[in-house]
Design a protein around this nucleic acid. Structure first.
Length: 253
DNA sequence: CGATTATGATTAA
DNA sequence: TAATCCTAATCGC
């Protein structure tokens, strides 16, 4: 589930459910029990997403920092909640809704300074107001690394994952092995604008929306290209698998 | 019913 | 590059 849109939508939903409310915090699994006890009974002041990171700030000054990683999930149910099912690291029970967290890569309490450090390490997030597009564009245009790797690098652009990367390069006809410094400025700007639009749609729909609603994925995990019907090819770039259409995305020279 | 897989990222080698 | 962490759903036998 989790690319940037997932976390921004989560922030929005949790803000609505929890902000201004005193919450019960627990760790049914036990692994987060000591920290949960510190947050228990406090009021949620704000919920923010930056890239794939989620920050929930309490009136105690503590900030809960969550990163879902590959398999983490936040689930919602109306309060009062049912007994936890499976392995629930963290449960936040508000008056109207209860949120259960499973399988996160990061779940910890930090202070505002550390939160600032986490955000400072990230590149611009197209979903944040005032995001600096040119910072992204300039970084790509100056890098010899493949664009397929740069898009997964959260210090270059925050919130992009394996699905958006595959689809944006496909729709723009860019081969993922193309070095950033060989791309046109206009192309890199188009990558940003396309991702920004898709991420916003993703928040709105609460799922990945790319090309069209009915047929969002044209290459990602597809045997044939959704555009031209040619068989796709799986490559490994930036340490992750990426599918490419050899017709729509000719290899760089 | 074990193996594999998943929209992630860090650490070690 | 490989190993590692985290959980649940799906796949193959």
């Amino acid at each position: 589930m989790p690319e940037g849109h997932t976390l921004h939508r989560l922030a929005r939903d949790q803000r609505k459910d929890l902000r201004g409310h005193k919450v019960s915090v627990s760790s049914p699994q036990g692994r987060f029990a000591d920290s949960a006890a510190l947050l228990d009974g406090h009021i949620v002041e704000r919920v923010d997403a930056y890239g794939k990171h989620l920050f929930i700030r309490f009136d105690s000054g503590d900030i809960l920092h969550v990163h879902l990683g590959l398999i983490g999930k936040f689930g919602r149910q109306p309060s009062p909640p049912d007994d936890p099912v499976g392995i629930v690291r963290l449960r936040i029970e508000g008056p109207n809704a209860t949120w259960d967290l499973r399988g996160p890569t990061v779940c910890r309490i930090i202070d505002p300074l550390e939160a600032k450090r986490v955000v400072a390490a990230l590149g611009p997030d197209p979903l944040r107001r005032g995001a600096d597009r040119d910072r992204f564009v300039d970084k790509v245009l100056r890098s010899p690394k493949p664009i397929g790797a740069l898009l997964l690098d959260q210090s270059v652009i925050a919130g992009i994952g394996n699905v958006f990367r595959a689809e944006v390069l496909h729709v723009l006809g860019v081969h993922p092995a193309t070095p950033g410094d060989q791309l046109d400025r206009a192309t890199v700007e188009a990558i940003w604008e396309t991702l920004a639009r898709w991420l916003r749609d993703g928040v709105r729909r609460n799922r990945i929306v790319t090309n069209t609603l009915a047929d969002p994925l044209h290459v990602y995990h597809r045997d044939v290209c959704g555009n031209c019907g040619a068989p796709t090819v799986a490559l490994e770039i930036g340490g992750r698998r990426i599918d490419v259409c050899p017709m729509c995305q000719p290899a760089p020279l």
